[in-house]
Structures are given as C-alpha cells and as structure tokens.
C-alpha cells in the first residue's frame, strides 16, 4: 500500500510538472524557439506567489490568477521586445539570448531575496484524504487539480477562440498565416505569454509542494526539457503525459533505488525515448 501511495503522490506532482512543460511545448510548437529560461520563469512565478503570501497572507491558490497574468505580460513583453528579432537566427544565438535572460532573472531574484530557501505556511499542509486505503496529501490533490484546470483552459483556448485558432494556423504554416493577413509577430507574443502563463500557474501550484530558492531554476529547465521530449515537443497531451511519467518515475526510483538517483532515472528514460522514438511518445513524426 505504501508503494501505491508513492505512485499516486508522483502522479499528482507529475500533473504540475506537466503544466510547466506544457508552456515550453507550446512555445516551441509555435515559435520554434527553445525557451532555455523556462525554469527561471517558473522560479520567478514561485517568488511572485511567495511575495503575495508574505505580504497579505493569501493562499498561493488565490493569488494564482494574478501571478499567471503577471507572467503572461512578462512573456508577451519578452517576445515582443527581444525574442521576435531572433526567431530566424541560428539556434546558438537564440540559446545565448535566453541564457542571458535566464542569468538576469536568477541574479535579480538573488539580489531581491538572497540564496535562502523560502516557503509558504499553509494550515492544511499536513491534511490528507483517505480514498480506499490510499492516502492523498491535500496539497498535492489541490496542486494537481489546479494543473488539470489550467491545462484544460489552455486546450479550450486553442480549440475554440479565434486567437487560439490563429496561433494554431501560425504553427502549421507561418507563411500561409502571413498571407491571409494574420499579425504573426503579435500572435507569437501572445503564444510566449501563454507559455509563460503556464509556468506562472505551475509555479504557484508548485509552491504548495516545495521550497523555492533562486538556484533551483536550472533543475526545472532540465525537467521541462525531459518532459516535453518524452511526450513529444509541441504536443499538448504529450507534455501532460510526460509530466506524469516523470513525476511517477521520480517518486518510484527515489523510493526503490535511492533519492539521489531519481533524476538519473529520468535522464535514462529521456535517452531511451530519444533513441527509440525521437519525436516523443505522442509527437508527430
């Protein structure tokens, strides 16, 4: 039963991972830029939720819409002001650009908050539900629920709104989209904003589960890479599936082998998938 508890905990954490990776996947799928500052943006959102909590005592779940909006605007401005000029440039220049952005974000957080770990105090932090013998942590259930709602909202946006459809058109055929008169630059900015909004929401949810400090950003960037490649870069359901796979594999390998091995297991999974099915589990060939 302990084993089942661990799998379920990994599953729930994995949903939040999935939402975070969804942002990376959307950005790559449309703009074809790998966001090397993804983890840094995630940590930025976590600090946003932390500050809101420290100032007003509000639950990160309640300040989530505000932080998500703030990250959307940040992503929109970043794409509009900076990244748009590099979309046709070689990969290594994009890499350097986003590396610089990532460095500045981490350094700013370090200047503002120092290197110490921060967290939020929740009165329900140790509550749990009992479902048929399986123990569910309340924070994990809430975080996973939030992640599923966030992913569903994004899916609905792409499926049903005009802007969402226009963005999908850009992703399918950029030149065609320009020919029919779509403002591709603006749509790219919206897309990057949405990708940032995903990490905004995921960051708030993640703060329910873990402490935050500036230097964990690289780990989140790597985690997001692993997840989207497992699921298929650019595939939305793939990102969620990848997130859940990594969440479960981390939890299980941390328990069965030893905690320090949990990310090695994820990397091994990534190598295996890349070599056997490079387009990812749910990606198109």
């Amino acid at each position: 039963m302990l084993f089942l508890n661990i799998i379920v905990a990994g599953l729930l954490t994995g949903a939040v991972y999935g939402l975070m990776a969804l942002g990376l996947s959307v950005i790559f799928g449309v703009i074809r830029v790998v966001n090397f500052a993804h983890g840094e943006m995630m940590v930025l959102a976590m600090y946003g939720a932390y500050v809101a909590n420290a100032a007003t005592g509000l639950d990160p779940l309640l300040t989530l819409p505000l932080v998500t909006l703030a990250l959307f605007l940040f992503g929109y401005a970043l794409q509009r002001g900076l990244i748009n000029r590099y979309i046709a440039r070689p990969e290594h220049e994009q890499f350097l650009l986003l590396l610089a952005v990532a460095t500045i974000i981490t350094a700013s957080l370090l200047m503002g908050f120092g290197p110490d770990a921060r967290n939020v105090q929740l009165d329900y932090a140790y509550d749990s539900y009992q479902v048929g013998g399986v123990l569910l942590d309340k924070v994990r259930v809430l975080a996973a629920g939030g992640a599923v709602v966030g992913a569903a909202a994004l899916w609905g946006f792409f499926r049903f709104t005009r802007t969402g459809k226009a963005i999908r058109a850009c992703a399918d055929n950029q030149v065609g989209a320009q020919v029919v008169g779509l403002d591709v630059k603006r749509l790219y900015a919206v897309t990057f904003g949405l990708g940032a909004a995903c990490v905004g929401a995921a960051g708030c949810l993640m703060l329910l589960l873990v402490d935050v400090q500036p230097y964990i950003a690289t780990d989140y960037t790597l985690l997001a890479f692993i997840i989207v490649i497992l699921g298929g870069l650019g595939s939305m359901p793939g990102a969620l599936l990848g997130g859940i796979l990594v969440g479960v594999s981390e939890a299980v390998s941390g328990f069965v082998i030893e905690p320090s091995f949990k990310s090695a297991f994820s990397f091994a999974l990534l190598i295996l998938v890349l070599l056997v099915r490079p387009q990812g589990l749910l990606g198109r060939a």
Binding site: T103, L110, M111, G114, P214
Partner: peptide, 12 residues
C-alpha cells in the same frame, strides 16, 4: 549577492 551575475547577464 547576485549583482555580479546580473551585470554578467546584461553584458551577454
């Protein structure tokens, strides 16, 4: 803390 990295990032 962080000022050095910030300036480095800005230079990049």
């Amino acid at each position: 803390a962080g000022l050095k990295q910030w300036l480095y990032g800005a230079a990049l």
